[in-house]
Design a binder for these strands. Structure first.
Lengths: 240, 240
DNA sequence: GTCTATAGTCGGATAGAC
DNA sequence: GTCTATCCGACTATAGAC
């Protein structure tokens, strides 16, 4: 498990990086449990097995470490949904956009937002906190990942429903559908108690994925059928 | 604005109650902005226009005040969705349950969960924090309101779909549909940026309500049509 | 680079005057 | 009941030894 002790900490970049990395990993956990204000550098250093003074040394301050955590969250999310977003981007650039493929891509985006609930608990907690009380960290996560995810989702819905669907409308619809998936992360405790689960792992995520995918399909097919019958979409509040 | 000064604070129960109430109102705001750990009694007392020592005096401790806030949240939520839950309870006790009425009740429950977003911001923040990091306060809110809301929602879905629908299945479906509504509270900042709104008030809530109601209707009608065609519901992970 | 020691600040709760 | 003054613990950041 240990690297060779002959590599001292002054010259080995791997060791230096590992001190930084240990602090970052510990910070993700601690900031997942406590807010920026109530988390303590003492506990982060302790969990990382590093010295307290290493935090201002490597990251400038507690807040600097928190922002590094935000950037780390972007990387984690991009690793999970980046490939699907790339596929969606390529699809939307095509001249021909078979609508069944829109549906498939939307389902993949939402299912990716459900996967690995338990390991994502700290990341989810931080994102949730930033949603209700945005700081600089929210802008990092939003512009680094959420914005593109949301924009692609809305455009996929628009591509599925046809040009008659206003973009703001599609934005709201995607937000609602994304909410179906996120509810199992943001309101985890409620579904654990109500469904009598102890964790949300493989089997539970499988059920959730099937339910959410089915809902998305029924909503989109239903809306498409209505549009073809010439139904006017619900009133919207802004010209688009 | 002031009550008659002849009523002194020692004998007038209204005045005594108002000191308690001022602390409680301030606490809802402050605990909405900061967690139990990072909120300070000094700021709560200051915003309430009360003395710092009044908090341990009236509520025992900072945590006691926090639990009182949780009970207050239950009252606020019950005032909003209590009547609808009562209507749903009465409906589910009836021998005859016209399925269109299930749909209507579900829509009313979800629309009530959307209303008054801005004034509910502090309450929402506290609930969200308790969902990701449950304390004693979560149990108060859950058993005081969330549990019944969720149970009624699942039973309404089951009543709509017919006896073939397993209860755990309906629980997951209701959680997903509730997520559509809650997404606009829990992920408020994202939809504000994406839809270019500055608040979620009357017009925005109207649009959200229409979209969510439409989605619920399409999902339930679609599932019912599938069930009538004899489609087996998605695999579930537990015998029910 | 890493550590210890500490400076300087701010927190919740309480004692005791009125 | 209400207030001021204060205790005591915990916090972040830094200075300076090694």
């Amino acid at each position: 498990m240990e690297v060779a002790p002959s590599l001292d900490t002054h010259t080995d970049p791997g060791r230096r990086a590992s001190a930084r990395q240990a602090l970052l990993d510990a910070a993700v956990e601690i900031f997942g449990e406590s807010s920026l204000e109530s988390a303590t550098t003492r506990e982060i250093a302790k969990r990382a097995g590093q010295n307290l003074a290493a935090i201002p040394y490597y990251y400038g301050s507690k807040e600097g470490l928190y922002l590094a955590v935000a950037e780390h969250i972007v990387q984690v999310m991009m690793r999970r949904i980046g490939p699907i977003m790339d596929a969606a981007s390529r699809f939307l650039e095509q001249a021909s956009q078979p609508h069944e493929e829109c549906l498939r891509l939307l389902q993949r985006l939402l299912c990716a937002s459900i996967a690995n609930t338990e390991t994502m608990v700290p990341v989810t907690s931080i994102i949730v906190r930033e949603q209700t009380h945005p700081t600089k960290a929210f802008s990092i996560i939003y512009s680094g990942c959420l914005e593109r995810l949301h924009a692609l989702g809305a455009r996929l819905i628009q591509a599925y429903l046809g040009d008659g669907a206003g973009l703001t409308h599609c934005v709201v619809r995607f937000h609602a559908l994304l909410g179906e998936a996120l509810a199992f992360r943001f309101a985890r405790e409620t579904i654990l108690r109500r469904a009598n689960w102890s964790v949300i792992a493989g089997p539970e995520e499988g059920l959730i994925g099937e339910v959410v995918s089915e809902h998305v399909e029924l909503v989109l097919r239903g809306l498409r059928a209505q549009a073809r019958r010439g139904k006017v979409p619900a009133a919207h509040i802004k010209a688009e």
